[in-house]
Design a protein around this nucleic acid. Structure first.
Lengths: 192, 192
DNA sequence: CAGAGCCTACCAACTAGTAGGGAGCCTGTC
DNA sequence: GACAGGCTCCCTACTAGTTGGTAGGCTCTG
């Protein structure tokens, strides 16, 4: 357990919220400085460069997501309910305005202008999520709970794409409810 | 026809390519200056502020998209083929690396940090595209060419979200073929 | 002459990042 | 117990380069 200074965590939490608003190039150390109450030079002490900060941030995000999926899988046995819970999580995020976007989905769009190290982490998140979803679809099909329209892998990729696209639509429409409006029919369609 | 100075068009074309790489905050007047061969001050002569430039850029993008959809609709009678052609267009864009992302999809993610006027244009594009797709799904269902899983509107929104999400996945994976891999099964699923 | 288009020369604010110093705290040693 | 050394964290002060944007002047054209 690292009970050590919460400052680095404060910085990461703040940076994550800022990135979720507009991506890599839409925030600066000065923005973090104002929120966390620390000088920009002190942020450099914790994270020497911006790419370091964002790489660590995304790596931590991936760990949390992975842990969350594992917890979800343990708590909920039914594959369809697992998908429902996954989408429900994001629906609640949008409703709360807490973290109204997947950091990795946003960064994925900016890939060409991202530091390579960050792009690698983002790719890792997409792979991990796609793998988890593939597993869910495989088990769902085997148990007769989900109706596959192609391979489990293909359905998983499509599910992920629709989810991310629904986040974009919600932002474009300026309407948090749009996310649920798009993803709920998605669930109905794949339910056996 | 406005045969007038191609400079403004050069600037718009260049800015569009730059935005398609990483969004609103990832390019500057200096970047355009280097490519177009003009001083940044001269860009301000054509577009007083950055938000002006991007607003006009997105408005022009919307017009082209609208015209493209109208042309597509005239040339191709079958609704399923229309969707095929729409996705084919983007697949070719990705393959060429010409314009490997929908400008509006990328900007949609950045909505919270976008100038209001730009966000309005982006929203307009999403509305227009969703409306067109809704029409295609309605006609497809009426002609027995497409299988709806919900209302035409809901299916259209889902189709659009999946398309945009597939763009994100292609970028995240660093693999242009991923777009086709995700969207082709999508077509098969909705074909009657 | 008027205006369009482009220039040079600015500007203030902001960008990520560096240098160096001071306060506090742990740790080892006499 | 004292005290030196080193380490962590944060500070002020600074840098060079970039940001979007302005002022004013030149040239070419209708």
């Amino acid at each position: 357990m690292n009970t050590q200074s919460t400052r680095a965590d404060d910085i990461l939490r703040c940076a994550r919220a800022l990135i979720a608003r507009g991506g890599y190039n839409s925030f600066s150390y000065a923005d973090i400085s104002k929120v966390v109450g620390i000088r920009t030079a002190s942020i450099h002490h914790h994270f020497p460069s911006k790419s370091d900060l964002v790489r660590v941030l995304v790596a931590q995000y991936r760990e949390e997501a992975s842990a969350g999926l594992a917890r979800l899988e343990q708590a909920i046995p039914d594959p369809l309910d697992q998908l429902r819970a996954y989408l429900g999580y994001w629906e609640r995020c949008f409703a709360d305005m807490a973290a109204p976007f997947c950091v990795c989905a946003l960064l994925a769009g900016e890939t060409p202008v991202l530091p390579e190290e960050v792009a690698v982490e983002v790719r890792g998140h997409f792979r991990r999520l796609a793998e988890w979803l593939t597993g869910v679809f495989e088990r769902g099909a085997a148990q007769g709970r989900l109706r596959l329209s192609g391979t489990a892998r293909a359905d998983a990729e499509m599910f992920m794409a629709t989810t991310h696209g629904a986040m974009l639509s919600a932002r474009a429409y300026g309407d948090a409810k749009a996310f649920g409006a798009i993803t709920r029919p998605l669930l109905e369609r794949i339910a056996a």
